[in-house]
Each structure stands twice: as C-alpha cells, then as structure tokens.
C-alpha cells in the first residue's frame, strides 16, 4: 500500500518535471508562480494588469511560470504557497493582500524560495515587498486639479479654488494618497482649499455619491476618490453633476468619459514585470521594500483619453515638470506610510 503510493508520487513528480522540461531554461531558473487575488483573472483591473506584466516578464526572460487561481483564495492561500514552494518553484508572487502574514511565516520555512507580496511591507530576507509611490502619483493629480479648478473656461468648472478628496477610511494607507494630493495642490496654489472626507467604507457607492454631491454643493468641482467601490458613486456623482472626479488604482477614465479628469494609476504590470526580470537575472530584491514610484514608472496619471482636449496643454506641461522634479529628487513628496503625518495634515 505504502510503496504503491510512493511509486505513484514518484511517477507524478516525474510527470511534472517532464511537463516543466518544455522550457530550455528550466535547468537555469526554477519556475515562477503568481497567485491571483480575489476577483480572479478577467477582473479588468488589478489581476489582469498584474498578469500582463507577469506574462511579458516570462516572455522576456524565458522563465517558466504559472498563474494560480482559486475559488477560495483567501482561506487556501497558505496551502497554495506552501505547495508551490514544495513543488520547486523559485519565485512565488501573491497578488492577494491577505496572504501577507502566511507568506512571512512560509518565507522562513522555505529560505530558497523568493517571495513577493504587494502593497504591504513584510520582513524576511527572501521577501520582496512591493509598494507603490501612491503619494507621488497623487501629488501629480493634486497639481493638475489645482490648476484646472479655477479655469472657468473649462466646462463644469467654477471660479472657487476648492477641490476635494474622499478616502475610504481614515488610515495611513489612505492618507498617503490624500497627503500627496494636498501637497501637489498647494504646490500650484498655496491658498487652495482641499476638502477631505472619509466614507468609512470601501464598498458603499451610494455613500460615495452622497458625499461627492455634498462637496460639489460646497464649491468643489474636482473630487479625487481613494475609496475603492465607494468611489464608483463618486464618479457617478461627477457624471450626474457635470463636474469631475479623479480615478484611482486603475485607469477609470472610461467609467464616465469626460467626467473623470484623470486617474492615478498603479502600474502593477510594471512592478511584476520588473520583479520577474530581476529574478531571472539573479537579482531578486530579497528583504527589500521596493518602491514603485514615478521614477520606476510604478505610478502614473492616466492617458486622459477623454479629457486631454479640454485641459490646456500648459497645465499638463506643468504636471510633467513636477514629475521630472520628483524623479530627479528635487522635490520630496510626503509619504505618510513611512514618515507619519506632516504638520499640514494631522
């Protein structure tokens, strides 16, 4: 019985190996696995963007790779990651936020495996924590909004120097966006009023709609949404009122063409692509917190497909100039997640 089972395991292991052996680079580099977060492939957002980067990274380097989907990715994350490490994978990336703690534990058990987690900092010599310079991207969004908000020649814009931002929740991870946004706005116009509010929910579009309307009533004409699903309501409100929203994370310009001024996009594809490339080049940033900021092209403003004709080119040029300054290190954007709260925002 036992020997039978052992034989079977051997058979399958051999079968697996031969499956993998399709790649000539197998001998050089152990394969990579990327675990898809809740929502699955086809979400048109986080997972799909990451997968695009993953595939292009694999293609460039010839590393063999697999994406892993599970209907129960939250509960089974630890088992999946452990199996990947047991199965001889050299690089395990998880897109699922909730896998952070188990990964920290697993990294100790599997020191020869390289681990990657997103949007959080995990300690371990073989863990790369990927964080995005959302504060930098938000700075650009604030700089653009501050210029636009007083230009009454643009449809839907009033004379008040007032803009808004709505966060999902009062938390450092969210205030990182908000503070960058405020800083960018004040760089353009030190007297600008930036209204800040929190929806206390990431999943309440109705509340987002209400709060955005309230801000519009108070004279704001551009509202930056940092509130996940709640933000859908904010974009809805902008569309209904003829004002503007600023999208976040992925390119949300198309959700209300013409009423989303721009989106602060996190380029997870760029991040994953670079991680895979680094791994293939034996240059895995183990133990590091990798900032994917403006310099790394990890965050950016969207292409503004629907709004670039409305916005004077000068404004965009000024934003581009700020971007260059930030990349060059001439301009520091406050990072709440590493620096705590600044004086101008308590």
């Amino acid at each position: 019985m036992m020997t039978n089972m052992t034989r079977r395991i051997l058979q399958v292991t051999t079968a697996c190996t031969s499956l993998m052996a399709g790649s000539a680079l197998w001998a050089d580099e152990r394969p990579a696995a990327m675990i898809i977060a809740q929502g699955g492939l086809g979400d048109g957002s986080w997972n799909d963007t990451a997968n695009a980067g993953f595939q292009s990274g694999l293609e460039k380097t010839g590393v063999e790779g697999r994406t892993i989907e599970s209907a129960d990715v939250a509960a089974q994350g630890e088992e999946i990651m452990r199996r990947a490490a047991d199965g001889g994978f050299g690089l395990v990336i998880s897109l699922e936020w909730i896998h952070g703690e188990p990964m920290e534990m697993l990294a100790k058990d599997y020191p020869d495996t390289n681990w990657v987690i997103m949007n959080q900092t995990r300690t371990g010599d073989n863990i790369a924590s990927v964080v995005f310079g959302e504060h930098e991207g938000s700075f650009l969004a604030g700089a653009l909004a501050a210029q636009v908000t007083t230009d009454t020649s643009i449809e839907g814009i009033n004379a008040d120097a007032t803009i808004g931002v709505i966060g999902g929740f009062k938390a450092p991870g969210i205030d990182k966006f908000i503070v960058g946004y405020i800083q960018g706005a004040k760089a353009v116009n030190p007297d600008i009023e930036v209204k800040v509010a929190y929806a206390d929910s990431f999943g309440d579009p109705a509340k987002g709609l209400q709060m955005a309307n309230a801000m519009f009533d108070e004279g704001a004409d551009i509202v930056y949404q940092v509130a996940g699903g709640t933000g859908i309501g904010i974009i809805e409100a902008a569309k209904a009122r003829g004002h503007y929203a600023i999208g976040v994370d992925s390119d949300q310009d198309g959700m209300a063409p013409g009423n989303v001024l721009t989106s602060m996009v996190k380029r997870v594809d760029v991040a994953v692509d670079e991680i895979v490339t680094g791994y293939a080049a034996d240059n895995f940033p183990g133990g590091e917190v990798i900032q994917f900021g403006l310099a790394e092209n990890g965050v950016a403003l969207s292409e503004m497909t629907h709004t670039k004709d409305k916005v004077p080119a000068a404004y965009i040029e000024r934003v581009t100039a700020y971007k260059a300054q930030i990349i060059a290190g001439e301009l520091d954007v406050w990072d709440v997640s590493s620096q705590g709260y600044p004086d101008f925002f308590k």
Partner: peptide, 17 residues
C-alpha cells in the same frame, strides 16, 4: 461587507479585512 469595509476595518490595511 459593510462592517469589514468600515467600522471593523483593520487600521493597518487598505484592504477589506
């Protein structure tokens, strides 16, 4: 969903936990 996205949301997290 409301509770984990709001009142019970972990302050350390941007995600719904």
């Amino acid at each position: 969903g409301y509770l984990v996205n709001g009142p019970l949301l972990s302050p350390l997290s941007g995600n719904n936990v």
